[in-house]
Design a protein around this nucleic acid. Structure first.
Lengths: 164, 164
DNA sequence: TAGACGTAGA
DNA sequence: TCTACGTCTA
């Protein structure tokens, strides 16, 4: 398809500003903010084979937590989604979870997008660049869940959606 | 959501020209060409309760046939998709199928969109307005399939994609 | 709440 | 081929 051989990148996307809103996930794919149409964590593979996260989407399906726009506690993917009726399983340090773990070690920035319910309807808002500060291994419903604490880079426009 | 209370309409969409291309189905939803993200047949309900088709998407999943841009034989929805592994069942004259049938009786135009594979990749192309000329009841894999023959309104720009 | 001609990548 | 924080209407 059109996207084959298109380069994924880490960091800001030219033409996309903090606070930009999108109606559909597909738009995130088109502009290059988040190239996975359904997965919460997008990542690329470096020449040395190591995978690094490029962006995450907080759509509210997992038990994430964002007390202020400066901090996001993001749940890993796989096995333990609260909205699934299937039996939970232990999350593994692979795929998107491994990518976020590597991003912490490398100190590379992550683009954060959140699904919000505004008066005009649901939309995805680009929150800007964050860094993975901590990787935690917790338990929910008796099974392993990865939790990633992300901190917002300073110097970016304020965002107050959802915090009155 | 944003689309609640937005009016579906029959006929041309302001700002969309014949031959316009779209990368994702979601874009068809956004511009109002086809408001169903996955279904092939979109329709509206008139004040008198009758449903009328507004648009169809030919994505290649069903056994449709378009010998030239002037004629499209479009398969009804439900029960009998060649690409499904599940056991086929008889299609019913309801939902999108009923809507297309009613559109023939009323003589109202249908927007036609086709998924094409171009050198640049897959995309959805707006083919323009068509009228339902005939409704047929056929059999495939032993089960009932509705077939709708659509004819293109004259006076619209030529389209030669896929016909060399 | 389920079903429907969705998409990209592993 | 399958999975994955999709999205609209009935």
């Amino acid at each position: 398809g059109i996207w084959v051989n298109t380069i994924r990148k880490i960091g800001s996307i030219r033409g996309v500003k903090v606070g930009d809103m999108f109606r559909h996930r597909a738009q995130l794919t088109i502009v290059g903010l988040h190239r996975q149409p359904l997965r919460g964590i997008d990542f690329l593979r470096r020449k040395d084979g190591r995978i690094l996260a490029t962006s995450i989407v907080d759509s509210g399906r997992y038990s994430n937590n964002m007390p202020s726009s400066d901090t996001l506690i993001y749940s890993g993917e796989g096995g333990n989604c609260p909205f699934e009726t299937t039996e939970p399983t232990n999350q593994k340090l692979k795929g998107g979870n491994l990518a976020l773990n590597n991003s912490k070690e490398e100190g590379t920035p992550i683009r954060v997008i959140r699904k919000l319910k505004l008066s005009s309807g649901l939309c995805y808002v680009y929150y800007g660049l964050y860094i993975v500060e901590k990787v935690m291994r917790a338990r929910e419903r008796g099974k392993v869940v990865y939790k990633f604490r992300l901190g917002r880079y300073s110097g970016q426009p304020k965002l107050t959606f959802g915090y009155s």
